[in-house]
């Protein structure tokens, strides 16, 4: 495993830690999109079906279990925890995420990695992950002020995919030497969706101002 991949995974993990920290310590999920969280649960459940069929390493199994477990935990807090659920910004979380699920599923049927149930679901998870942040970004745009933990959470999530891009470039030249259209293009789209957010995040950080996205 190369340094970009490890840094990407750790950034991804850290983003989840930051979100859980926000929820558990402040007992609030204000500014967090439940729809994005639901999409992540779906992404992890459909991608990690290979937990039952293939073994790569202890690291791989552990991380997959952590991602599934934490995404379900976050979903549970936002949906069912009697204090946390009252802080959910329901009216602002208006993105129609079912359209994303349907669109990605049709895309995966048309352009799957391979024609089998598990490979179509794997491809679906790659497409869905690319756009899963959209409800969250829309919610942030509608929020008047974005707290630090929420801003850092979204930044870390974007940084994770950007680091994976570097990992793919590195792996292309050092081991694989093959073009991998589906994850590369999806990963590029995913990272590009954060461009606007990155710009305002870095600006607010440099000016020591509160993060706010223009409507």
């Amino acid at each position: 495993m190369n340094v970009f991949r490890l840094a990407g995974d750790m950034t991804h993990l850290l983003s989840i830690v930051v979100l859980l920290l926000k929820i558990r310590t402040t007992k609030s999920c204000a500014g967090i999109s439940l729809k994005t969280q639901e999409l992540y649960v779906l992404v992890f459940l459909t991608r990690y079906l290979d937990l039952f069929t293939r073994y790569f390493s202890v690291y791989n199994v552990l991380m997959k279990l952590i991602f599934i477990g934490t995404s379900v935990a976050i979903f549970w807090y936002m949906r069912y925890h009697k204090v946390v659920k009252q802080t959910y910004s329901k009216d602002l979380d208006s993105f129609r995420h079912y359209h994303l699920i349907l669109g990605c599923f049709l895309m995966a049927l048309l352009i799957p990695f391979d024609f089998s149930v598990t490979e179509v679901l794997w491809t679906f998870s790659i497409y869905l992950e690319a756009v899963a942040i959209l409800p969250q970004l829309v919610l942030l745009q509608k929020s008047r002020n974005i707290d630090n933990l929420t801003g850092n959470y979204v930044f870390l999530l974007g940084a994770y995919r950007a680091l994976y891009l570097l990992n793919w470039i590195y792996r292309f030249f050092t081991e694989i030497h093959k073009i991998r259209w589906i994850p590369w293009i999806s990963g590029l789209v995913q990272t590009a969706l954060y461009a606007d957010f990155f710009y305002y995040y870095i600006q607010s950080w440099r000016k020591h101002e509160e993060l706010k996205l223009p409507a």
Partner: peptide
Amino acid sequence: LVPTDLKDEL
């Protein structure tokens, strides 16, 4: 069938 190089990523 499926190259393992692709699927060891998270």
